[in-house]
């Protein structure tokens, strides 16, 4: 398998990205451990309403971790903790600690804007910006201050290749993003997320609005990507989780009065064949949810 990162290293070695200050503190960590999360006793509340409680888990580097569970169990909310997108929703409070490569990302002095350059996100519905394909992908790098045309060109190509979209759009980079099909738009959004050279890409049900063929393409893309970035994917589709993930975390809100808990997390193969917890087994065999 061709490593996406290796292309990146050759093509853009000259680019000087003003790296976020949080990066300096992780300089000592081995390259292979980049992009790993540790969650300790994480809880989330909307206003006074506690929705997630006591989540402890490791998200290993360069692997696909799937979050599964019935709808309303807080998968997406937990996902948004990892790039602090919950900050944007106003009334959400997050407790506990989340570390990215050993550094606590919940501390106030960590700038969420810098964090999000390291932790990208792909959303449920394709949401390209109303501009050209090229400008969509170049948006993140331009935000980081990259202006040189050659550098941008290289980044755009590399990111589109990473999202398996390059061959389809290489001749029409100036085309408006809205002219692409739904599946292409979603891969464009993946390319857009890759262009900031993130260590982690969060995906919130990225294929739920797509047809089966597009879904297949997205899944192939994810399989390609995991050699270079950490992927955390929320999905309600258990087959999908089984197909694409290395590790699976099962979340459940057992009643409306209680917050959701992390029931079990482990190797995907084990989760789907021999789970430790009865509730995981019931969910996976389709007894509820």
């Amino acid at each position: 398998m061709v490593s996406v990162l290796s292309i990146a290293d050759e093509g853009t070695a000259a680019i000087v990205v003003p790296r976020p200050s949080v990066d300096d503190r992780t300089a000592g960590i081995a390259e292979s451990a980049r992009g790993s999360f540790t969650l300790a006793d994480v809880s989330v509340a909307y206003g006074d309403d506690l929705v997630i409680e006591g989540v402890d888990m490791e998200i290993p580097s360069r692997a696909v971790t799937a979050l599964i569970g019935p709808s309303g169990c807080g998968k997406s909310t937990l996902l948004r903790c990892l790039n602090r997108m919950n900050d944007e929703l106003g009334t959400v409070r997050v407790g506990g600690t989340i570390t990215l490569d050993g550094q606590d990302i919940m501390r106030r002095e960590v700038d969420p804007v810098e964090l999000r350059m390291r932790v990208g996100q792909v959303f449920q519905r394709p949401n390209p910006f109303p501009m050209s394909i090229y400008d969509n992908v170049a948006f993140g790098p331009r935000t980081q201050g990259i202006r040189r045309r050659a550098d941008l060109d290289a980044l755009v190509e590399e990111s589109l290749r990473g999202a398996a979209l390059w061959d389809e759009v290489r001749k029409s980079l100036k085309k408006h993003a809205f002219e692409l099909s739904g599946g292409q738009q979603q891969r464009l959004c993946i390319a857009r997320a890759l262009a900031t050279k993130p260590e982690v890409v969060l995906m919130d049900e990225p294929a739920s609005a797509l047809d089966p063929i597009s879904t297949q393409q997205i899944e192939d893309t994810i399989a390609e990507l995991k050699s270079s970035v950490t992927i955390v994917i929320v999905t309600h589709n258990m087959q999908q989780a089984a197909r694409i993930s290395d590790r699976t975390a099962f979340m459940l809100r057992e009643s409306l009065e209680e917050p959701a808990h992390l029931i079990e997390v482990g190797e995907t193969k084990k989760m789907f064949t021999n789970p430790d917890d009865k509730r995981t087994e019931s969910y996976i065999t389709g007894r509820f949810g």
Partner: peptide, 20 residues
Amino acid sequence: DIRQASLALGATKLRTIYKV
């Protein structure tokens, strides 16, 4: 979700508003 996509790319709120 367009705004969120821009924020998730590390754009500030101001940049999100005037660029997107």
